[in-house]
Design a protein around this nucleic acid. Structure first.
Lengths: 143, 143
DNA sequence: ATTACATGTAACAATATAGATTACAGGATG
DNA sequence: CATCCTGTAATCTATATTGTTACATGTAAT
């Protein structure tokens, strides 16, 4: 099991919008960089738009960033592309036996624990911005 | 997307082995508490056994804990049940375009970032033990 | 030894989700 | 109005999870 690559693709898209900001970033162009099809790019770009991260309009070729590079964290992207429903990173079995002391309490016991772990993950993602990603890419390019 | 409930079921099993340590914990009995079928329980119990967390023998009814309660962390369980391959919590798109500055660097750039986030998650799981879980269950019972 | 019962494991179906692909309606611009 | 692009839905394939059944293997008691 892995978290959907929509998250990684979202980061890819935003980085590309910055690095190719002087070009026209059509879904076809982006798809060629990601190595997928334009429809998927339009879908993900739409999610990023709903989150206020990119500007893109029906009928008009090209997308662009809607916020400063340094103001977009990976957590923003993560939340945008709906790879994990809120508080549902960890799956929990349904209908444990209410006649058993463990069965009737397990969900309420592990729920908060899972939340803490999930928040730790999100905190780590919240520290990194697209600016960091772009800088790292450009740094790797100049070697 | 959610991480397989095998993880939650594994925690359930270990907690039950402790709380019902004076009984005979057959796969059928455990399955009734979890509300699933015995075959799945035997599969997960087998994983926990491979990780050295439980004792269980072919032909002999009942399983038991192989380590002290306080020495089993949720991270141990998490690793045992193979819900996430190592370093693969986050899926990354394959074959990005090597002719594009972003495409040829994105994997190496986000890989380490994803690792940090994954380690943050694992660290949070490593802090909690089955003893903590059992105590919480019993505490909830006594209310 | 034979019987009874439990575990280990494989096979199969059912379900859910991701991703690829195709198609087309709707919007924008020259 | 002709063209191009985005938005979106439908379909298909592949994969993973979970449920279910079946059976070989192992253990212990009679």
């Amino acid at each position: 099991m892995s978290i959907s690559s929509r998250f990684a693709v979202g980061i890819h898209i935003l980085s590309l919008l910055e690095i190719n900001k002087d070009g026209v970033n059509t879904s076809e162009y982006i798809a060629a960089s990601v190595s997928t099809n334009p429809a998927l790019i339009r879908k993900i770009t739409g999610m990023l738009k709903n989150a206020g991260l990119v500007n893109v309009r029906p009928g008009v070729a090209g997308a662009g960033l809607a916020k400063e590079l340094s103001e977009i964290t990976l957590l923003d992207v993560y939340k945008s592309v709906n790879v994990v429903q809120d508080k549902e990173l960890f799956g929990v079995h349904e209908n444990p036996n209410p006649a058993c002391p463990v069965g009737r309490n397990i969900q309420n016991t592990i729920g908060p624990i899972f939340s803490v772990a999930e928040l730790a993950l999100e905190k780590a993602l919240g520290i990194v911005t697209i600016e960091d990603v772009v800088k790292d890419i450009l740094e790797k390019e100049n070697k």
